[in-house]
Computed example of a mutant assay.
Amino acid sequence: MEEGGSVRWLYREKPDREEDSGWRLFEGTENDEYNSHASNISIVNVYALLDKDPSLITPLRGEFGTAFEREDINRPWTQINDWDGL
């Protein structure tokens, strides 16, 4: 959620703890090395996300095991049906 960035890829897995929604959100250009550093990962309040990008309401309604992507913030969300990343 850095300035000028937007969520372009997200998926939902089983939560790690009670307060966890299970959603994992990405800008879409992160690599494994970037994601392996805990300092690059943060917990964000869902309302803060929706304030920044109201279109997130569509994918955030998804069930566990769902994934969504889009080309950029001006494009619609597409559910990924053949994703087996879980």
Rank of each mutant, 00 (worst) to 15 (best):
M1T: 11
M1Y: 03
E2Y: 10
E2T: 13
E3F: 08
G4E: 05
G4A: 05
G4S: 10
G5F: 03
S6E: 15
S6H: 12
V7K: 07
R8E: 06
R8A: 04
W9S: 06
Y11N: 02
Y11R: 15
Y11D: 02
E13L: 14
E13T: 15
K14S: 15
K14H: 14
K14R: 15
P15K: 09
P15F: 10
P15S: 04
E18M: 00
E18C: 01
E18K: 12
E18P: 04
D20E: 07
S21Y: 02
S21V: 03
S21N: 01
W23H: 14
R24L: 15
L25A: 12
E27P: 00
E27G: 08
G28T: 05
T29G: 10
T29M: 11
E30V: 10
E30S: 09
N31V: 04
N31D: 15
D32W: 07
D32N: 12
D32S: 09
E33W: 06
S36D: 15
A38N: 13
A38Y: 15
S39F: 04
N40D: 08
I41R: 11
I43E: 09
I43N: 01
V44C: 01
V44Q: 05
N45K: 02
N45A: 04
V46Y: 07
Y47C: 03
Y47R: 08
Y47F: 06
A48P: 00
A48Y: 03
A48N: 01
L49C: 09
L49K: 03
L49G: 02
L50C: 07
L50N: 07
D51A: 10
K52S: 13
D53G: 04
P54M: 08
P54E: 05
S55P: 01
S55T: 13
S55M: 02
I57T: 13
I57H: 11
T58C: 04
T58A: 05
P59I: 13
R61P: 02
G62K: 10
E63T: 10
E63S: 13
F64A: 11
G65M: 02
T66G: 06
T66A: 14
A67C: 11
A67V: 03
F68T: 05
F68E: 08
F68C: 09
R70T: 00
E71P: 00
D72Y: 01
N74F: 01
W77D: 01
W77Q: 00
T78H: 09
Q79I: 13
Q79K: 14
Q79R: 15
I80G: 01
I80M: 07
D82V: 02
D82S: 08
D82P: 00
W83Y: 10
W83G: 03
D84C: 05
D84R: 11
G85A: 09
G85N: 03
G85T: 04
L86M: 11
L86D: 12
L86N: 13
